[in-house]
Amino acid sequence: MASASHRRPRAPRKRRTALVSAVVVAAVGLLLSLVFALRPGGAPDTVRTAAGPGDHGGPRTAPTAAKRTPAPKAKPEPSHASPGPTRTPTAAPARPSPAPTPRTSARPASGAAPLAGRVKPGVTYRGIATHYDAADGDGACSYGPSPDLMVAAMNHTDYETSAACGAYLLVRAANGASVTVRVTNECPLPCAPGQLDLSKEAFAKLAGLSAGRIPVSWSLLSPATSDTVSIRYKTGSSRHWCGIQALGHRNPLARLEVRAGGGWQRLTRTGYNYFLSPDGTGCGGSLRLTDIHGERLTVDGVPVRPGVVQPTRVQFARVM
Rank of each mutant, 00 (worst) to 15 (best):
R182E: 10
S142E: 13
D197K: 04
A260P: 00
A260H: 13
G208E: 11
R172K: 15
S226M: 07
C191D: 08
G176I: 02
S142N: 13
A254I: 02
A207K: 10
R239F: 09
S219I: 00
C141A: 15
A224D: 14
K200F: 02
S230I: 01
W218S: 06
D227M: 06
A135C: 04
G139C: 10
Y159T: 00
L247G: 01
S230N: 11
A135I: 05
G236Q: 04
W218P: 04
L209W: 10
P147K: 09
E257T: 11
L198K: 09
D148K: 06
G208K: 11
A224V: 13
R255N: 14
A135Y: 10
A202G: 07
H131Q: 12
R259D: 12
V179N: 02
I244E: 02
T180I: 12
E160S: 14
C141N: 08
R259F: 11
G261V: 07
C165A: 06
Q265E: 13
I244W: 05
S162R: 05
A173D: 13
N185K: 02
S222V: 10
Y132G: 03
P215V: 05
H156A: 15
W264E: 04
A224C: 00
S210G: 13
A202P: 09
N251W: 02
V179T: 13
S146W: 01
Y233S: 03
E257F: 00
K205V: 04
Y233R: 00
S146Q: 12
E201K: 12
T225D: 09
R172G: 05
P223W: 08
L189D: 10
A224I: 07
E186C: 05
Y132W: 13
R172T: 12
H249K: 00
Q245M: 03
W218T: 04
M154P: 01
C187G: 14
D227L: 12
G236K: 01
H156K: 11
V171I: 12
P252C: 08
A192F: 07
G248T: 07
L149F: 03
G166Q: 03
P190V: 03
A260E: 14
H131K: 02
P193W: 07
G212W: 02
M150Y: 12
H240A: 15
Q195E: 15
